[in-house]
């Protein structure tokens, strides 16, 4: 074997290595081929039904449910006050829209939700990141977080009404408290479950705390933050309805409460569907965001 001495390369002149490897040896430049010579056959094309299977079966289920419900209601075994059918609910909805009251109720409830939830996210995410990162901060706040998370926050409604009145402020407080802990606890869990090997890589390359935080802690906890936000919407919607049940001037919860106590069951259903739609929309939106941040995960 002959000794070959290669000139050490200059870093700014790369790549100037022999792409074909070293002649006379099997020391070649092993490139990883992008197009492998594997032979493939295309799968048989899917039928129209196969491609939309999940959607079709899912919506058929929903359709069957509504038809059955309408059938039972139309049989009039019970009075419409007891069990209204989908058609009754739709008529009640149109009535409420024409009254103009529904718009106010939705606006008030929506405003409470948006402010309370936004506050919860604005406080929950940064605090979760900080408490997850700095154990001493966590030691300080852990008792409070545990206490509030273990308590059903709606028991605080009477206090909030005393302190903030029966306007939107007391509702915002309940919604905020409902959502903030789910967001905070999940964010904290995200930071604490960061891959230790990635943190070691960062330290090894001489990254400071702030850089590690920005490049590893924050992106690494995104899935947890989004889970927290998703759970938070549920808690916040409960807050909207329950807080308005207790005492309110406007809002969907108040509308449902009054409708319920005056046997207007159809209106209760209208409120229920509106709240459920809000929940679905928010969940869908957050799933879209999740998918955006999950671009690096291979499709299964």
């Amino acid at each position: 074997m002959a000794e070959r001495v290669e000139e050490p390369i200059k870093y700014d002149s790369l790549p100037n290595f022999p792409a074909e490897g070293f002649p006379g040896t099997d020391m070649g430049a092993t490139r990883v081929p992008r197009d492998s010579p594997i032979r493939t056959t295309p799968l048989p094309p899917q039928t129209w039904f196969q491609r939309r299977e999940a959607l079709l079966i899912g919506s058929s289920g929903v359709a069957v449910f509504f038809i059955a419900w309408q059938a039972v209601a139309s049989a009039r075994i019970w009075s419409p006050l007891f069990l209204p059918g989908p058609v009754d609910v739709w008529q009640a909805f149109l009535e409420l829209v024409n009254d103009g009251e529904l718009a106010t109720d939705i606006a008030v409830s929506g405003q409470e939700f948006v402010i309370g939830y936004a506050l919860a996210a604005l406080v929950g995410i940064p605090c979760g990141l900080l408490f997850g990162w700095y154990p001493r901060l966590r030691y300080v706040f852990d008792p409070f977080i545990t206490f509030f998370y273990a308590t059903p926050r709606i028991v605080l409604i009477p206090l909030f009404i005393i302190w903030l009145g029966i306007g939107v402020e007391s509702k915002i407080a309940v919604i905020y408290l409902g959502a903030v802990f789910a967001i905070l606890i999940n964010t904290m869990a995200g930071v604490r479950s960061l891959d230790a090997s990635l943190l070691r890589v960062a330290r090894s390359f001489g990254a400071g705390d702030l850089h590690i935080f920005r490049t590893i802690a924050l992106p690494g906890s995104v899935p947890f933050i989004l889970t927290g936000l998703r759970l938070g919407t549920g808690h916040a919607l409960i807050g909207v309805v329950v807080a308005e049940y207790v005492a309110a001037q406007h809002g969907l919860g108040r509308m449902m409460m009054i409708a319920g106590s005056t046997f207007q069951s159809s209106k209760v259903f209208v409120g229920l569907f509106l709240i459920a739609s809000a929940g679905l929309l928010l969940t869908y939106g957050l799933q879209r965001i999740e998918r955006h941040f999950d671009a690096w995960r291979p499709q299964r």
Binding site: L198, R200, V201, S204, F205, G206, T215, V222, W296
Partner: peptide, 19 residues
Amino acid sequence: RPGHDRAMVFQQPSLLPWR
């Protein structure tokens, strides 16, 4: 302390999955 005059190739790839 760690410095730019040394660089480690780790036992596990330890790559940032989102990059």
